[in-house]
Simulated assay, not measured.
Amino acid sequence: MSFFRSLFSARPAPRHFARLDESGICRAFKHCSHAPQGGEWVEVNEQRLVWLGQPLPASARITPRAARSALRLLLAA
């Protein structure tokens, strides 16, 4: 029965992450529901292979979720 229920339960939406080296160069991508541990991973709005080996464009970055929720609270007040 739990398998049947799991088919209809809400799952976290997959998110895109890019791993940056110490120079800010994009070295890898990851597509997962939670932020990866270790390394310098930043959330991006999409994955583009042309970014590999290049500096990540500032427009690609997504602000951290905690900062966005705090911003919403400030704007709602």
Rank of each mutant, 00 (worst) to 15 (best):
M1A: 13
S2Q: 13
F3V: 06
F4N: 12
F4H: 10
F4E: 15
R5V: 12
R5I: 11
R5C: 12
R5A: 15
S6H: 14
L7A: 08
F8N: 05
F8C: 07
S9V: 13
S9I: 13
S9E: 14
A10D: 07
A10E: 14
R11F: 03
P12Y: 01
A13V: 11
A13N: 09
R15W: 04
R15V: 02
R15H: 07
R15T: 02
H16C: 15
H16Y: 15
H16D: 12
F17W: 15
F17T: 00
F17M: 02
A18D: 09
A18G: 08
R19C: 14
R19G: 05
R19Q: 15
L20R: 10
L20K: 09
E22S: 14
S23Q: 15
S23D: 11
G24P: 03
G24C: 06
I25N: 00
I25A: 08
C26M: 08
R27C: 14
R27V: 15
A28E: 15
A28T: 01
F29L: 07
F29P: 04
K30T: 00
K30W: 05
K30N: 11
K30H: 15
C32V: 15
S33E: 08
S33M: 10
S33H: 08
H34G: 03
H34F: 12
H34P: 01
H34Q: 13
H34L: 15
A35S: 09
P36S: 08
Q37T: 12
G38H: 10
W41A: 09
W41T: 04
V42P: 06
V44K: 04
V44W: 07
V44R: 01
V44C: 11
V44M: 07
N45V: 08
N45G: 12
N45T: 07
E46M: 14
E46I: 03
Q47I: 15
Q47Y: 00
Q47S: 07
R48V: 06
R48A: 14
R48C: 09
R48F: 01
L49S: 07
L49C: 09
L49M: 12
V50C: 09
V50H: 04
W51V: 05
W51A: 06
W51E: 04
L52I: 12
L52N: 06
L52E: 04
L52A: 03
Q54H: 09
P55N: 03
P55F: 06
P55G: 01
P57E: 03
P57V: 01
P57F: 01
A58L: 08
A58D: 14
A58P: 02
S59T: 05
S59G: 05
A60W: 03
R61W: 00
R61S: 02
R61N: 03
I62G: 00
I62F: 01
T63S: 08
T63H: 11
R65D: 10
R65S: 09
A66R: 06
A66C: 03
A66F: 06
A67R: 10
R68H: 00
R68A: 10
S69W: 09
S69D: 10
S69Y: 02
S69L: 11
S69F: 06
S69E: 10
A70G: 05
A70V: 03
L71H: 11
R72D: 10
R72C: 12
R72H: 09
R72V: 02
R72I: 01
L73V: 01
L73T: 05
L74W: 10
L74V: 00
L75V: 11
L75P: 00
A76L: 11
A76P: 04
A76T: 02
